[in-house]
Design a protein around this nucleic acid. Structure first.
Lengths: 204, 204
DNA sequence: TAGATTGTTAATCGATTAACAATC
DNA sequence: TAGATTGTTAATCGATTAACAATC
């Protein structure tokens, strides 16, 4: 579902309406699946015409809980954290960075993207009044679990981790995990699969 | 499948054997599914004991085409590209960075992680003799399509893109796409879902 | 032998697809 | 009216699960 939204946002530059087959092509799906998924949203397209891009985007955003602003904190302001902090897509996407934390004295106190990096020890009190905060972990592997613990203590509702480490967190905290090695493995898998397919085809 | 490998690698510090239920817990799966998936690999566990961690890892790696070294190039050496270049997990994971490319004169010629960044125009000739190369795109959104085109021309077999842009590439090139906004959307979705669940539960 | 855990079958469940009436 | 495209049903396909014999 986030993928549909992503494709729609890419597409906005074009027409104001999109058909299920067009969206399917963009999202690498079949038209039938797209229609099924969208009808599940209770969303209303127009027969003979397609879906209103703007209206559909709004409906999906609402469904994803993106109708109100979400607060983000970034833990770890090395190269990765800095890159994430400077990522522009937050504004449109209904996220805003409300805090940046590090443990390195050289980094704490410096400015990244117009915001002063604070010490991780300040996180808990900083976020005491926040309602629903998402944490992004961009620290070295050894520090990832500690960062997760701090985020949990500070009341984070969800964590997005870029560290190649399995995190132990209470069940009520959602964790998503982006691991470069895993992504490369997946890529390698597809390429290997396809190659052996064409080899088999060539052998016939 | 890459996820199993990831979990196994995390686990290695412990015992030399792992049961389907343990692996299931780590990978957020059911024991039955794990056994089904692994049996599909033709892998052999031992009844009453479990799976040999080392042997299982090797089997999965082989299946993923990770039995031989894969070459990587990184396009875009800003903060994100630099973070990726310094990522340590390549060595164990059977990937190695063979080239770094940028277009900015301030970056071209500098050293990142012990390797000199070259100009994107050099990529094609640099990779002429390479067999199976994966490209990582870590450039700003506007430059992503251009980077993809260059990688395709240079003969990349797969592309991992961190740019929030839909890429047009020939069908034979595999693309994986990591978009921060999409990940956050997914996180937001789960949290929203769960919250409305517990509200419903509370309402009863 | 007793306990543990795999490998695999059969049953269930859910997701995808084809197809077409509804309708703009 | 003719063409296009949705929304939805019914059929198919695949994935997950339960369960248990096999066996270490």
């Amino acid at each position: 579902m986030p993928r549909y939204l992503f494709c729609l946002e890419q597409f906005t530059k074009g027409a104001s309406t999109i058909s299920s087959s067009e969206l399917a092509r963009l999202a690498d799906e079949t038209a039938a699946t797209v229609r099924k998924d969208l009808s599940y949203l209770g969303s209303h397209g127009t027969r003979g015409i397609g879906y209103d891009v703007e209206r559909l985007s709004d409906t999906i955003r609402q469904r994803l809980g993106l109708d109100r602003l979400r607060d983000l904190v970034i833990v770890g302001l090395g190269h990765l954290g800095t890159a994430l902090a400077n990522y522009g897509g937050f504004d449109e996407g209904m996220f805003r960075v409300v805090g940046m934390y590090d443990i390195d004295p050289e980094i704490v106190g410096s400015r990244v993207g117009g915001m002063v990096v604070r010490h991780v020890d300040d996180m808990r009190s900083d976020l005491a009044s926040a309602d629903c905060v998402f944490g992004i972990i961009a620290v070295p592997p050894d520090a990832a679990q500690e960062a997760a613990d701090l985020l949990v203590e500070a009341g984070a509702a969800g964590i997005l981790s870029f560290a190649p480490t399995l995190l132990r967190v209470p069940r009520q905290v959602f964790v998503r995990h982006i691991d470069l090695a895993t992504e490369l493995h997946a890529l390698s898998y597809y390429v290997t699969e396809r190659r052996s397919h064409s080899e088999r085809r060539a052998a016939r």
